[in-house]
Design a protein around this nucleic acid. Structure first.
Lengths: 209, 209
DNA sequence: TACTCATGTGTACAGTTGTTCACTAATGTG
DNA sequence: CACATTAGTGAACAACTGTACACATGAGTA
């Protein structure tokens, strides 16, 4: 059969990927991880690594793909939970924060990768963020909350929103997971950032165009 | 004499710091640099490293201090060049872009350090950004452009501005230094981000409070 | 059943790493 | 001048690195 692909899920492959994530979660930077280190953490012999990845950059790229899945799951949940429009920002930020904590290592990897060593990983993460922003734009259009904005101005706004949230992510990952006070501070600040941006968007045409 | 400190500038010390920056400029991630690698690049024997730094984190911390100097220089130039208020954003973004290119390695180091391995370096860079934001707030107050905003709302606005510019920095560092078209795209987008934020700030009280 | 092939193992090797130690050259101080 | 301190050197070491190779295994196919 020409159409063969992996029958068995490839257990080791996922052990290796989550081993890398575990090390990142422990405070290591992805760029400083070595093949032996990752295989050791995975409880696998070093040579096994090459059965699944060419090198660490390759592993990083495949982690980006999984990151995409995590982000999409988050978007879906946010869409389902949107009850009334006036609480949209608060609820979305809450969902974001809870996902960021549930997938701490993943988001750490994402934050590191933005300025990481591998150009390909960098571009991958950037592309996930662009996708996220364009989905956000779609949703806002559908909810008819931004009828006065042109497509390109809506894009601009959503891009800025995503960037701001991504930056808050670095704040969030910097505090320990149990520090509820600090987390709430970040939550409030992020919400105010987004409110500020949307006030700007609401008054965009009347002032600047 | 108790008050002795370094008489000779410590040439090697700066060779080591700029060697690390050079490697970062070549695409390496700071977290993946080793002592031997840096000393090799500096043209110095490995043992010399320990005369000036305890470890790579220590070197990173001292780089953050120098980064502060670079940022302050940039702020000073921005303040001197502010001609008329209506071009304030454009001119500031231009100065930012030219400094980012003149000190490419420094800003790469900054972008990396935000999600870096060393908590201390991370906190150092964050603190530089906070300082930058508070200086910006001072300037805006002095120019009487934001009289309607409370101190804390002005803080919020300036923080968001600095974060947005910092994110644009990662865009900027991602394109090759000679790609004028892409650089201009980033320039325009950054300017529009800031305009959007300031429109938000201008209408902040009337809408939300 | 016999075969193939993806997956995982163990051994091996040359190159690199961080760090130590004892040594030298220069420098400013008493 | 003699002296103490600092900055830089070179050799050495054990630990670790990435990668190559030959081999074992077990499952799917013919």
């Amino acid at each position: 059969m020409a159409e063969r692909q992996r029958r068995k899920p490839g257990e080791t492959r996922e052990k290796l990927m989550s081993a890398a994530l575990t090390l990142v979660g422990k405070g290591r930077h992805f760029a400083s991880l070595g093949i032996r280190e990752v295989t050791r953490q995975a409880g696998v012999v070093p040579t096994s690594f090459y059965r699944h990845f060419r090198n660490m950059d390759d592993l990083g790229l495949q982690l980006v793909d999984e990151l995409g899945v995590v982000l999409r799951r988050m978007m879906r949940e946010a869409r389902e939970h949107v009850s009334q429009a006036d609480k949209l920002i608060e609820e979305s930020v809450d969902i974001f924060i809870s996902h960021a904590q549930a997938n701490r290592s993943f988001f750490l990897f994402m934050a590191q990768g933005l300025a990481g060593e591998s150009r390909a990983v960098q571009e991958g993460i950037r592309s996930e963020m662009r996708f996220f922003a364009s989905e956000l734009a779609n949703d806002l259009r559908r909810l008819r909350l931004v009828d006065h904005l042109s497509d390109s101005d809506l894009d601009l706004t959503c891009d800025l929103v995503v960037r701001s949230v991504a930056f808050s992510l670095t704040d969030l990952l910097g505090v320990s997971a149990g520090d509820d006070y600090q987390i709430d501070q970040i939550r409030k600040r992020t919400i105010r950032f987004l409110q500020l941006i949307f006030v700007g968007a609401a008054n965009w045409n009347s002032v600047s165009r």
